[in-house]
Computed example of a mutant assay.
Amino acid sequence: MTQEIHGTVADGFQAVRAEFAAFVAGERPDYEGQLCAYVHGRKVVDLWAGTDADALYGVFSSTKGAAHLVVALLVQDGTLELDRKVTYYWPEFAAEGKGQLTLRELLAHRAGVVGTDSGFTLAELADDRLLAERLADQRPFWRPGTAFGYHALVIGALAGEVVRRATGRTLQEVYEERVRAPYGLDFFMGLPAPQEPRFRSTQPMAPTPEQRALFDAAPAGPHTLASIAFNRNAAEPTDLESLPNLPLVRAKGPASVGGVASARGLAGMYAAAISEVDEKAPLLKPDTVAEFGQLHSVGYDLVARAHKSFGLGFQATADTWHPFLGAGTIGHSGAAGSQAFADPRSGLAYGYTRRRFAFPGGAAPENDRLARAIHRAALAL
């Protein structure tokens, strides 16, 4: 039985509703997902199926977008300087040859500290300060600044420790005060107890035979760089898909993977970043968006073992996922399939969430057809 499509679209976006309905019709009967978009600060798409508009999901690495929006705000304020050494803010980080790394290089996934030799406990993964303490003493896995690799579980803790040292506040506190609360966003880094009933636990999807074959062909030993980056080398290896299902992770909201959001929250945050929303000026000035969206690390990702692209903290969404988007688009996808971004050239802010974790993880493939339909409609306005 096909799920019913709920919600609204603005005039000119009817094709988006049809595209969403066509996708949902081909999905499993238990599909749950949400789609939301703004154009120049106006909500133009607000759709959901198999759930309700107020449901909250673990959005995994889409959390990194919120974390690096905070960093961008502090750079814009002058509180942080991109070309200062990380040790200017965090002296202990100099251990094991990391003393010359700049904040710019750290944000571009060039630090080389994707994990630790012995891995992390669950308590450490949930707490950015504990992660940062462990990472400060870790010898980098490549010479800092010479290459890049996805710091999947730790980039938020690394950036967050710089924020804490510079401001005296945690990254999560700055985000709450300057971004989430002023706009009433359903995108939390640290889910308050009263919001817990809205959370929908992540559920896995079985891989297709083609996906399983691809996964089995990849390096799987616990001491590979990819395994270290995803904490598979720990005494209790991390089961990535279960992380947001753990109350400790939801409560602490680690800035790499611990966010909980709806599609409205994801799209609303990026709309606020680049556009006037509710008569509030954009959070980021155009020059700040351009700086953080500029390509900084492009090529062979040592962790992913594939071509990847990053700006400062944000994924280079147009190069990595959706080539039809404008140059300088900032955003970040999440392992269970979520996707969120802002395209400053078209004024489009996009958010998508789903409940089921699509094997083997990453932005769900349906995002391409959904984002393309919205982008096409936005350009036609």
Results as ranks from 00 to 15, higher is better:
His332Gly: 09
Ala108Leu: 10
Ala94Phe: 01
Gly41Met: 03
Asp52Lys: 08
Gly337Asp: 09
Ala15Phe: 00
Glu236Lys: 14
Thr238Glu: 14
Ala235Cys: 02
Ala193Asn: 00
Ala37Cys: 08
Ala126Phe: 07
Ala18Cys: 01
Val39Leu: 05
Val289Met: 04
Gly268Tyr: 05
Leu80Trp: 09
Thr8Arg: 14
Tyr38Gln: 00
Glu124Arg: 12
Leu130Thr: 07
Gln100Met: 05
Ala220Gly: 15
Asn367Leu: 03
Pro209Arg: 01
Glu19Pro: 00
Ala251Leu: 07
Arg212His: 03
Arg372Val: 02
Ala340Ile: 02
Leu266Phe: 01
Ala49Thr: 13
Tyr175Thr: 09
Asp117Met: 09
Arg178Val: 02
Ala218Cys: 02
Gln195Ser: 11
Asp77Phe: 02
Ala25Asp: 15
Gly253Gln: 12
Ala95Thr: 01
Gly41His: 03
Ala327Arg: 09
Tyr183Asp: 05
Leu125Asp: 08
His332Asp: 05
Phe357Tyr: 15
Gln138Val: 07
Asp30Ile: 01
Arg356Ala: 13
Ala126Ile: 08
Glu196Cys: 05
Val70Arg: 10
Arg165Leu: 07
Ala206Pro: 06
Ala255Pro: 07
Gly58Asn: 10
Pro197Gln: 04
Glu4Asp: 13
Asp301Lys: 00
Ala206Leu: 14
Ala229Gly: 09
Glu92Lys: 06
Gln203Pro: 00
Leu214Asp: 14
Val75Gly: 11
Asp127Thr: 11
Arg169Asn: 14
Ala273Asp: 03
Thr87Cys: 14
Ala377Ser: 15
Ala304Asp: 00
Tyr183Asn: 05
Gln315Asn: 00
Leu130Trp: 08
Lys64Asn: 03
Leu35Gln: 01
Gly12Gln: 10
His375Tyr: 14
Ala72Lys: 06
Gln34Trp: 09
Ile330Met: 12
Thr79Gly: 04
Gly12Ile: 13
Thr63Leu: 11
Gln195Phe: 02
Ala335Trp: 12
Ala108Gln: 07
Ala111Glu: 09
Arg198Ser: 08
Phe230Leu: 15
Leu243Gly: 06
Ala273Gln: 04
Pro237His: 11
Pro29Ala: 01
Ala152Trp: 05
Thr202Leu: 14
Trp142Asp: 13
Ala251His: 09
Ala136Arg: 11
Val179Asn: 05
Gly115Ser: 12
Ser61Trp: 06
Ala21His: 04
Asp77Ser: 13
Ala18Thr: 14
His307Trp: 09
Arg17Asp: 01
Glu161Thr: 08
Ala304Met: 13
Pro219Asn: 12
Tyr150Val: 10
Phe13Gly: 03
Tyr270Ser: 04
Val86His: 10
Ala166Leu: 07
Ala25Glu: 13
Gly334Cys: 08
His307Glu: 12
Gly7Ser: 13
Thr63Ile: 11
Ala336Phe: 00
His68Val: 06
Thr87Leu: 08
Thr116Cys: 05
Glu210Trp: 02
